[in-house]
């Protein structure tokens, strides 16, 4: 894993996620937008080894918190769910795009609900997301995964991820 490149990509995606440019993709009056950080979370959790996946999940969670207004909830929720995916994929390969899209959808809902509960603890006045919005964002991100899988995979390879995930052995970490 090339960590400097990864840091650059995370900052880029975090800025993109919260930028006005993403409004082009927004739907309905609720301005439902896909969550690119969520897509990356699932991608890295599926294709990295568990050790790297843990670090990446928390890093993406931190980025998600930075783009919001409350620090902590996404850091924990992304970290825990990302780690869980990295372990679950030992049982379910999550090899096909359809399986990965389903993982994005389920992860999106799980991450958002945990973050919502934690935000309620820290800053109750900031909790405004409803269940419909959570589901809509997760579904939109899952659909988008079919379109962005190719560029995300290319970026992943540039970061040194995914080359051997479904091959022989990842690395020697215990």
């Amino acid at each position: 894993m090339k960590w400097w490149r990864f840091t650059f990509v995370v900052i880029l995606v975090a800025v993109l996620q919260v930028s006005a440019a993403m409004n082009v993709l927004s739907l309905t009056n609720l301005r439902i937008k896909p969550d690119v950080l969520l897509i990356l979370l699932v991608y890295f959790a599926v294709y990295c080894d568990v050790y790297d996946a843990v670090i990446i999940s928390f890093a993406l969670g931190f980025a998600a918190d930075m783009t919001g207004m409350v620090l902590g909830p996404h850091f924990i929720s992304y970290g825990i769910i990302g780690t869980a995916i990295a372990h679950i994929r030992k049982l379910i390969l999550l090899k096909t795009t359809r399986q990965q899209a389903a993982a994005v959808f389920i992860t999106g809902i799980a991450v958002a609900i945990i973050a919502l509960v934690l935000t309620q603890i820290k800053a109750p006045q900031m909790t405004k997301t409803g269940l419909f919005e959570i589901t809509a964002v997760a579904a939109y991100s899952a659909i988008l995964w079919f379109l962005v899988k190719w560029p995300v995979t290319k970026i992943g390879k540039w970061l040194g991820v995914g080359a051997h995930r479904f091959g022989l052995k990842t690395d020697g970490r215990v």
């Binding site: 670090i55 928390f58 924990i76």
Partner: peptide, 9 residues
Amino acid sequence: LVLMGFILL
């Protein structure tokens, strides 16, 4: 990292 998250929280 989880502990760090809770400290942030």
